[in-house]
């Protein structure tokens, strides 16, 4: 399994990584090697094996429906890149 430069561009876009064009082929080569390593999995028959998403087979604990948080906007926005009137500013969202 190897990744083409086009596939790397596609994946980089999905992950919103603005990879420099000059770096694409090196990533393609490295990612292909990782996929080769991963490819060993295909030799194993996993028919009927339940996928394991968590180390422990336990169920979700539930929280009581209580408001426990207070307004901490000022603290949370202290390190924010750009705020105004309590809002986080971003380039125009077009809908």
């Amino acid at each position: 399994m190897s990744l083409s430069s086009d596939e790397v561009r596609k994946v980089a876009h999905l992950a919103r990584l603005g990879i420099e064009e000059s770096a694409i082929s090196e990533y393609a080569e490295q990612l292909s090697r990782i996929l080769e390593l991963v490819e060993q999995m295909q030799a194993v028959d996993t028919e009927g094996v339940e996928p394991m998403a968590h180390p422990q087979d336990i169920s979700q604990r539930l929280r009581d429906d209580e408001v426990t948080e207070t307004d901490q906007r000022d603290r949370f926005q202290e390190g924010a890149p750009q705020v105004e009137s309590g809002l986080y500013l971003v380039p125009k969202v077009i809908e």
Binding site: V38, M41, Q42, V44, T46, V49, E50, P51, M52, P55
Partner: peptide, 15 residues
Amino acid sequence: DAYYRKAQQIRRLIS
């Protein structure tokens, strides 16, 4: 299926 699901299945075998 070929990657994520497969990996989680083998994860169970390892466990």
